Simulated assay, not measured.
Amino acid sequence: MTALRAFSHCIDAISEAVGLGLRWVALLLIALGVVNVFGRYLGAQIGFQLSSNALLEAQTQAFAVLFLLGASDLLRQDGHIRVDIVHSHLSARARGWIDLIGGLLVVIPFSLVMLVFGLDYVERSWSRLEVSPNPGGLPLYPIKTLILVGFTLLLLQGLSQVIKAASWLRGET
C-alpha cells in the first residue's frame, strides 16, 4: 500500500499544481470579461465596435479551461457538491466508505466514459482543424483537447481519492 500512497501523493501534487496555475486563467477570464463589457458599452457610446467574437470566445474558452482542468483539484480538496447535510452526520468511517464507493462507482467510471466518448469527438475536431463558425472566431480543436486532459486528470484524482480512502479505512494514515 505504500507504493500506492506514494502514487496518490504524486497525483495530488499534479492536481494542486494545475489548480495553482488556473489562478492565472481565472485572472485572464476576469480581464476578458471586463474588456468585453467596456468594449460593448463604450463602443456603443462612441459608435465604434470595440469588442469582437474572438474576445467573447476567448472568455468562454477560459471558463472551459477552468471548468475542465479545475475539477481534479476541486476533488482533491473535497470541494465537490454533495449532500453535506447527510454526510456531516455520518461517522468518519461511514464517510470513508462513501468516498471509497463513490470513487469506484461514480468518479472513475464517469471519467472513463467521458474519455471514451471524448476521444472520437476530439479526433474529428483535430482532423478538420475545427474553427468557430462565428466571424473572427477562434480555433476549437485546442480547447476540445482539454476534454481529454481534464477527464484524465479527474480519473487520476479519482484513483488517488480511492487509494486514500482505502488506506484510511485500513487504518493506515
Score class of each variant (00 low, 15 high):
Gln59Ser: 15
Ser132Gln: 12
Pro133Ile: 06
Phe67Tyr: 15
Ser52Asn: 05
Leu69Gln: 11
Ser52Gln: 10
Met114Thr: 00
Arg93Tyr: 06
Ala92Tyr: 06
Leu74Asn: 10
Ser111Ile: 01
His87Phe: 07
Ile46Cys: 06
Gln59Phe: 14
Val106Ile: 07
Gln77Ile: 14
Gln45Ala: 15
Asn53Gln: 05
Leu105Val: 13
Met114Val: 01
Gly96Thr: 12
Arg93Phe: 06
Asp120Ala: 03
Val106Trp: 05
Ser111Gly: 03
Arg128His: 08
Val131Cys: 07
Asp84Leu: 05
Val106Cys: 07
Val131Met: 07
Gln61Tyr: 09
Phe48Arg: 09
Gly103Pro: 10
Asp78Ser: 11
Ile81Val: 15
Arg128Ala: 11
Ile98Arg: 03
Asn134Lys: 15
Ser127Cys: 01
Asp99His: 03
Gly47Thr: 04
Leu129His: 05
Glu123Val: 02
Leu129Lys: 09
Gln45Tyr: 09
Val122Trp: 02
Val131Ile: 12
Val107Ala: 06
Leu115Val: 01
Leu100Asn: 05
Ala64Ser: 14
Leu119Phe: 14
Ser132Thr: 10
Val106Gly: 00
Glu130His: 04
Leu56Pro: 01
Leu69Arg: 12
Gly102His: 06
Asp120Gly: 05
Ile101Leu: 14
Gly70Ser: 09
Ile85Ser: 07
Ser52Pro: 15
Ile108Leu: 11
Arg76Met: 14
Phe63Pro: 00
Ser91Gln: 13
Ser125Ala: 08
Ile101Arg: 06
Gln61Trp: 09
His80Leu: 05
Val65Gly: 06
Arg82Lys: 07
Ile108Trp: 02
Ala64Lys: 08
Ile85Cys: 00
Leu119Trp: 14
Val122Tyr: 00
Val83Cys: 05
Val116Ala: 07
Val131Trp: 02
His80Asp: 03
Val65Gln: 04
Gly79Leu: 10
Leu100Lys: 04
Gly79Ser: 08
Gly96Lys: 02
Trp126Gly: 02
Ser88His: 12
Val122Gly: 04
Leu55Phe: 12
Val113Asp: 02
Ser111Trp: 01
Leu90Lys: 13
Arg76Asp: 14
Ser88Thr: 15
Thr60Val: 09
Leu69Tyr: 13
Leu90Trp: 10
Pro109Asp: 04
Phe48Cys: 00
Leu119Val: 03
Gln45His: 08
Pro133Glu: 07
Gln61Asp: 07
Leu66Gln: 10
Tyr121Glu: 00
Asp99Ser: 11
Leu56Val: 08
Asp84Val: 05
Leu74Val: 15
Ser51Phe: 10
His80Ile: 04
Phe67Lys: 08
Arg93Cys: 07
Leu68Tyr: 05
Leu66Arg: 11
Asp84Trp: 06
Gly79Tyr: 01
Trp97Glu: 03
Ser127Gln: 13
Pro109Ala: 03
Phe48Asp: 02
Pro109Cys: 02
Val83Phe: 14
Val86Glu: 09
Val107Lys: 02
Gly70Pro: 12
Gln45Ile: 03
Asp73Lys: 10
Gly102Trp: 01
Leu50Arg: 13
Leu75Phe: 08
Val86Phe: 12
Gly96Pro: 09
Leu115Asp: 03
Gln77Asp: 13
Ala92Trp: 00
Phe67Asn: 10
Ser127Phe: 04
Phe67Trp: 12
Ala62Ser: 13
Asp120Pro: 00
Val83Ala: 09
Asp73Tyr: 11
Trp97Ile: 09
Gly102Ala: 08
Phe117Thr: 02
Leu56Tyr: 02
Asp120Glu: 07
Glu57Asp: 11
Pro109Glu: 01
Asp99Thr: 06
Gln77Tyr: 11
Ser51Lys: 12
Asn134Arg: 15
Asp120Gln: 06
